[in-house]
Write a protein that binds this DNA or RNA. Structure first.
Length: 434
RNA sequence: GCGGCUAUAGUUCAGUGGCAGAACGCCGCUCUGUGGCAGCGGAUGUCGUGGGUUCGAAACCCACUAGCCGCCCCA
């Protein structure tokens, strides 16, 4: 019989790698908490309409990458419904915001999430069909200050702090403003017009993009097209006074807080709901991501709530590609030394197994990480296993059990001492000098 | 979704048509109250899956599956 395997684009995360995942998530929780964010958990699947309206019917995500199925009615009282595994989490958070009338609190909502997302793309390193995002949203009624530039700057400063604390080296923040909901179409129209006479000279991709999605032309990496692209209209010239002012305030706050950034007038993002500030954090080549070098992205979505039938609720958010962050940390880590246990408890003779288990229980209760051997093992085998797993080994033989004085071997120091059982936990906490 | 490269032991890989290999790791013994070293021995396996060519296929051909690289797009 054919063996079953994890389906394409999905994967198992195993120890010791999961330890890194936990560290990343713990760091995110700790940092976000300092900025007064609370956790939200939304469903893994939602009504398909949520993504069609929120993310945008015309985006690649919605038009060809979603896992959608018809959840048929199973009773007369039940209606058939099109459901979709979430391809991103912002739409779900905004849906929950509307559904639970969080705007009526009058307070700014600061929500973060950690969870899997699903897109049916061709898998590649750093790109999976089930992938994890760590994200956050700041959203609220206008009077809560949700559309103020200080919120944008706070989010960006928090991300810089998070990346530094989690240990990402060499990150780069690219920043742009795509303007208000009316600025953007005006710019796209101007772009189309400017492209019409020159597109014939451009690469095949650009000729197609000039028709389907002119903003994407700005992303082109074809060397021969760069001069043409430089000459195209700039989004900055199409911002209304408020958007321009908003962007200036964001930049000023970042300057004051010492968060480095690069203005990238060509940074356009694929989700339809973005307005004003958009950003992306990337890592340098050689960080383990290849061309998938965008670690996280985000932006402001001042009209999203209304698009979903909710009240006016401006907001800004981001999503970190956790899989990519992990790959980056692994590639950048000089050498990941596997973490060792505090001690290995080695019974000598199977008769000592119960006593060894009891000692392990006491030590674990004292907060130590402990593995227990088996008295059937020859002592040599216990030593080998212990040295591989732990810093120290506690020998539990007949003599030790009788006297209550245990023999402890410290592998790094190569020393061996006798320790009364009552002082054992304390002795294992201290690392002897080499 | 498109183009390309790849798939052999737990891992990294060698093997260009004639007995399935190396290193590391693993297991055993020397050695049942003192490890790391050493010596000796052992197992590594559907050569990704299915078909084809051939006296003979891990190798050549086709299809499929999966991973990777690039594109598209995005985190």
């Amino acid at each position: 019989m054919a063996t079953l395997k994890a389906v394409r684009g999905t994967r198992d995360l195993l120890p010791p790698e999961t330890e890194l995942w936990n560290r990343v998530e713990a760091t995110a929780r700790a940092v976000f908490a300092r900025y007064a964010f609370g956790e939200i958990r939304t469903p893994i699947f939602e009504d398909t309409q949520l993504f069609a309206r929120g993310v945008g019917e015309e985006t690649d995500i919605v038009s060809k990458e979603m896992y959608t199925w018809e959840d048929r009615a199973r009773a007369a009282s039940e209606k058939a419904q099109s459901l979709t595994l979430r391809p991103e989490n912002t739409a779900g958070v905004v849906r929950a915001y509307i559904e639970h009338k969080l705007d009526e609190s009058g307070m700014l909502q600061k929500l973060f999430y950690i969870g899997p997302q699903f897109r049916r793309e061709r898998p590649q390193r750093g790109r999976y069909r089930q992938f994890w995002q760590i994200g956050a949203e700041v959203i609220g009624p206008a009077w809560s200050g949700s559309e103020r530039a200080i919120r944008d700057a706070e989010v960006l400063e928090m991300l810089a702090t998070f990346l530094n604390e989690v240990g990402v080296k060499g990150w780069r923040l690219a920043l742009n403003s795509v303007g208000s909901a009316t600025d953007r179409p005006r710019y796209v129209a101007a772009l189309r017009e400017a492209l019409a006479p020159v597109k014939a000279t451009m690469c095949e991709n650009c000729q197609r993009r000039a028709e389907t999605n002119p903003l994407r032309v700005l992303d082109c990496k074809e060397p021969g097209d760069q001069a043409t692209i430089e000459a195209l209209p700039k989004i900055a010239d199409f911002l209304d006074a408020e958007s321009r002012d908003h962007f200036e305030q964001v930049k000023a706050a970042l300057d004051t807080c010492g968060v480095p950034y690069v203005i990238d007038p060509r940074l356009v993002r694929g989700l339809d709901y973005y307005t004003r500030t958009t950003f992306e954090f990337t890592v340098p080549d050689g960080s383990g991501l290849g061309t998938q070098n965008a670690l996280l992205g985000g932006g402001r979505y001042d009209g999203l709530s209304e698009m979903l039938g909710g009240p006016k609720a401006p907001g800004i958010g981001f999503a970190i590609g956790e899989d990519r962050l992990i790959l980056t940390l692994q590639a950048q880590a000089a050498e990941a030394t596997p973490k060792k246990l505090d001690a290995f408890v080695a019974p000598i003779g199977a008769a000592q197994n119960p006593a060894a288990l009891q000692i392990a229980k006491e030590l674990r209760a004292a907060g130590l990480t402990i593995e227990v051997g088996d008295g059937d093992f020859r002592l040599r085998k216990s030593f080998e296993a212990a040295d591989k797993l732990a810093h120290r080994m506690v020998m539990v033989g007949e003599d030790e059990v009788a006297s209550g004085i245990l023999t402890v071997k410290y592998f790094e120091a190569g020393e061996q001492t006798k320790v009364p059982r009552s002082e054992l936990a304390e002795a294992l906490r201290t690392v002897p000098a080499k």
